[in-house]
């Protein structure tokens, strides 16, 4: 009996038709793809994308130059030099570079920063055209922070209770 059943099964390509019915049914189902640049997959507030340096509400840069992020970075992607600022003599970073080729986007710098100065934004699509553009300078990082200010602040406050 079993032999006969197997024979019929294989003669009439039953399993093939079952499979084809399944793939065929997908023709009528809703698509599960999204149209990328216009439409994006959901992104969590914890997303670790391109870095940014924050400024506080008075426009003063948050970073105090404690170099914790530099010390904790596993890829040694951050280079910081500090010194007194010219106008008021407060301790600031005179140089803050992140080498995006070295960075592994682990988020340790964000975790380490005691004043939430360095953050990782939701920006994940960027490119470089020239050699050397991979090194993000302090001004660029601050500019990214300004541009995405609201998003960064809302993400930070959404995550505050978990950290």
């Amino acid at each position: 009996m079993k032999v006969l059943r197997n024979y019929i099964k294989s003669l009439f390509l039953l399993e093939m038709f079952k499979g084809m019915r399944l793939t065929g049914s997908y023709l009528w189902r809703k698509k599960f793809t999204i149209r990328y640049p216009e439409e994006r997959a959901p992104m969590s507030p914890r997303f670790r994308g391109l870095h940014a340096l924050r400024r506080d509400e008075n426009g003063e840069e948050c970073c105090v130059g404690c170099k914790l992020c530099e010390a904790t970075c596993p890829a040694m992607a951050i280079t910081i030099e500090t010194g007194p600022r010219e106008d008021d003599g407060s301790r600031r970073t005179t140089r803050y570079d992140i080498d995006l080729f070295k960075c592994i986007f682990c988020g340790y710098c964000v975790e380490a920063c005691p004043v939430d100065a360095i953050v990782e934004t939701r920006i994940c699509d960027y490119h470089f055209e020239e050699r050397g553009e991979n090194i993000m300078l302090k001004d660029e990082l601050l500019a990214i922070g300004e541009e995405n200010r609201d998003r960064i602040n809302s993400d930070l406050s959404a995550q505050a209770k978990y950290r």
């Binding site: 216009e38 439409e39 994006r40």
Partner: peptide, 12 residues
């Protein structure tokens, strides 16, 4: 987390 990120409205 207590909430999942959601799809945002788009023209499609």
């Amino acid at each position: 987390p207590d909430s999942m990120p959601k799809y945002e409205a788009s023209k499609f």
